[in-house]
Write a protein that binds this DNA or RNA. Structure first.
Lengths: 132, 132
DNA sequence: CTATTTGCAAAGTGTTTGCAATGAC
DNA sequence: GTCATTGCAAACACTTTGCAAATAG
């Protein structure tokens, strides 16, 4: 996604185009990691020179409401954000903390109306298994 | 589980038997809800007359380490605790906040070593669907 | 020029920690 | 009597809020 496509996306959602917002989205798209607010903050600060946690959290909230971002409730500590909103789960390595996307198939029968499904698997990732 | 069985369970794990610990476990077993630390605190305070959040969190931590309790990372806010450690998922009603146990079958292939799987489904529960 | 956005500082929430007093055994 | 446990108060980490200054359009 080019900068002007990011700008269009923001404008079409009624949002103003600010350097902070553009850089947040650029970061999420380019790196495809699963960053915390802290990591997004550090990147945008480096790139733009000025940003605050207020702006990070505000922007992540509007992006989530726009359906452009998923907020993932990894157990303890901080939430992480995923720009890939397709249906997939996450594997969290308990050694190095890396979060991997995983494909899954889940079936369950509930007398309720499901809106969102969250699958999180905790364990040790391949890389850490080798190192240990 | 009788009080003396609870006492035995504590002792066999090298823990002293205090009124607060007994009442915490009794509460988890009798009600089978998915309480937050706050709810456990309120119950134990009413029953025992004296308890602190320090004690609640300390006890829940040792119970979790003993494998007697599962801590569930429901999205926002506070964690909830489940004394049923068998393999099952959870449905969280976004209207009333109730957490229901759900049976599920999930399949995924990962090059990693899984230790724990957490499935949480968010939506509107049957009861709230009728009321709305 | 106007309405939105930024960002500081302060507040808020759930949880943990330091440490003295209490209590189990 | 000894060592674990309790519980207060303070500290913590992440996130949100109030509000004035800056900025996009």
């Amino acid at each position: 996604m080019t900068t002007s496509q990011i700008a269009d996306m923001l404008r079409s959602n009624g949002l103003k185009v600010t350097p902070q917002r553009v850089e947040i989205i650029r970061f999420l798209q380019a790196h495809r990691v699963h960053p915390t607010a802290q990591q997004i903050y550090e990147h945008v600060l480096r790139k733009v020179g000025s940003v605050s946690f207020t702006t990070i959290y505000n922007t992540m909230r509007v992006l989530e409401q726009m359906g452009q971002v998923r907020k993932i409730p990894i157990t303890e500590n901080a939430a992480i954000y995923d720009i890939d909103t397709s249906d997939h789960g996450h594997f969290v390595c308990e050694i190095c903390g890396t979060v991997y996307d995983i494909a899954y198939k889940a079936s369950f029968q509930i007398p309720h109306q499901a809106r969102k499904t969250e699958l999180i698997v905790y364990g040790v990732c391949e890389r850490c298994m080798k190192t240990q």
